[in-house]
Design a protein around this nucleic acid. Structure first.
Lengths: 207, 207, 207, 207
DNA sequence: GATGAATGAGATTTCATTCAT
DNA sequence: TATGAATGAAATCTCATTCAT
């Protein structure tokens, strides 16, 4: 019987939390497919039986973790600023990029797993893509709105015709650079934030 | 006895090829960890015994496929042009991006698997990173050389101080957008090539 | 602590009844061995703890249900009529067969499970056989008494030497036809009662 | 991969046979649901892996055994004689009943399990019922043909209107008495064959 | 070179039963 | 009385790998 099927008491919630934390830690250290249910319950200091009391299987545990990640992604999607083509816009963008990096970092493990289509079901992968495209759309909106506010004829074709494609490309860049940073490869974080926001800015505003 | 331990006769080569093709097709359809040796031999119309005659295990089969991919990646790394800040440079860059997309597409499955650290060993993942950074370096070289050729003082800080970080970000963008295009998501390929090269160009040349 | 260990209060009786009903319904729908204690308590809207408060285990629950069935079987055993070889005897037999069918139907699930030696313990299965042979004996008595009353020399060997075997055969027929009727197979009930009693009658009285 | 998915070599056939025999013996001794795959494998002197190489699970093993039983049942169905209302008819019937008892005995275990609807799937249970009704039909044919051959007006209503119901009842009697005899209860076999055939005869021919 | 049958360690999953509250 | 969380022994099932032919 998967979790949430029934209201949980105090103790139950506590146990679920222990399992979720243990699962995340294991996935983080060893990757999804290498982790056995046994590893999770051992780390959570419970039993096999207890695990299956709350989750249908390892995938189900992952889904629960994913829900949090997608929720936080949705939150920063809503926060994408109007980026005007001036220093204020640059600053707003850089602040948002910094926040994005923080959120990504917090859920890096889960997002990495999600991006490996094979490991999650069709449905979840679809949820992930959906979240992604909403984010691309938010970027498109924020960038074009900023340009329009300043300059009615939108000189750059990047902003008029191809804004969506540009947004997707920038988003992929953000995602992947953060993947590298979160994983093992060491890139200087602050400079990277500057570079990423500068590239996004230039991608939309370069003549 | 792993492959290549000894020269193969006609029939042996044929069998190895069948196994490689079957393995690639299976990985493509179901992902690395979901594929069992049994799936591969069934698809290749051979037997388990035969598989282990040529490959030590599933990883070994993957490594053989990976070698091709890394070789082709090395080739386009060597071909990165000198991108001057003028229309000729833009065109050269766009042509290279197009070629990159083609090569990536040909090896998308293998590259996707490689990028999932957990699924391949440390060593292979390291090979992948190495190839990646060589490519980032080639981009850095091509872009700065182009700028230097035209404009000795390299006004943009992107080109002087942070060129490497910019190159990494652009490369990640290239990689990830191609991942989306190769997987299931449909993005317009020609426009995407234009956008990607425009963004890379702007990333380095925007004031 | 198994049931009946101690007098039950109002609430306790109510709970036991809920469990018995839930158990019967579950056995009916899914068969004995497929039913888990969990299914029963869920259907009864109680908890595992409560179940084990009143029953030692699943077998114990079944035994409680079985007691009712065997009691009712004993009652109709006692009611088997004296079947004289004439229309009055035929009618008396048919009425009894009708009643047998009704009783069987009421306890079909329990009897079916009982007849599957493997599913119940040795002891219970023995109880069932015992009830059965008492019934066969009652049939023997009723049939031979009826014949003797009418016709002192008992021409038919069925009545003299092999009456018991005949009774067992007829009883098995009754039992099994009712099993079919109680399960899913649709046989016309009234005609079947007529046929069954006619066959029993002929089995004993045919020359 | 269940059996029969692919042609089996010599050794494979041998192993399948060992597993089938071991399974039958175990089911016989301990009943279907009490038997674990482990018991079967241990008795057959093979391994778990080998079991699952040829059968999908315990049910699948049973199905294979069932096929044999149903085939033999079909054979004696085809052999039901024309039972004329005279000594020759009685003898033919008794011989057939004897053969039925032998065949039933050979497959008693499997038939017992089959008759416990819950243990086998819907489909198999349906196959069993189908076989049963074909047998009832054969009995109906044989009995009415015999009567018709001798006596054109078919005086007894048992033969005209209700022959099918009578056949079902007789068949259930046969089945169930044989179940008792095959199980543990000791009934005198030869006398029982006589009694069963006499009852069937009387059921159809009693005025 | 090729085969496919056999293996068994290890992973997943179930469920009767206990126990603290 | 009642609860539901926890348990873990035992069963099911998978699959990489070996080996005799």
């Amino acid at each position: 019987m998967p979790a949430q099927g029934r209201a949980l008491g105090r103790q139950g919630q506590q146990t679920v939390r222990k399992l979720l934390e243990a699962g995340l830690a294991e996935f983080d250290e060893r990757g999804f497919s290498a982790v056995r249910v046994d590893d999770v319950v051992r780390r959570a200091n419970t039993s096999h039986g207890t695990f299956y009391l709350y989750f249908a299987n390892k995938d189900d545990l992952f889904k629960a973790l994913l829900r949090d990640a997608l929720r936080d992604m949705q939150i920063i999607t809503d926060e994408f600023p109007v980026v005007t083509p001036n220093p204020a816009g640059r600053t707003a963008l850089r602040n948002w990029v910094r926040k994005f990096c923080e959120v990504y970092h917090a859920h890096a493990t889960v997002i990495m797993i999600l991006s490996q289509a094979e490991l999650v079901g069709e449905e979840l992968y679809g949820d992930g893509l959906h979240t992604l495209f909403r984010l691309a759309e938010a970027i498109t909106q924020g960038m074009t709105a900023g340009a329009r506010a300043h300059n009615l004829d939108l000189g750059s074709p990047a902003l008029s015709e191809h804004a969506e494609l540009t947004a997707v490309a920038c988003l992929m860049m953000l995602e992947r650079v953060n993947y590298l940073m979160s994983a093992d490869v060491r890139l200087p974080k602050d400079e990277m934030v500057d570079r990423l926001s500068a590239i996004i800015y230039a991608a939309f505003h370069a003549s």
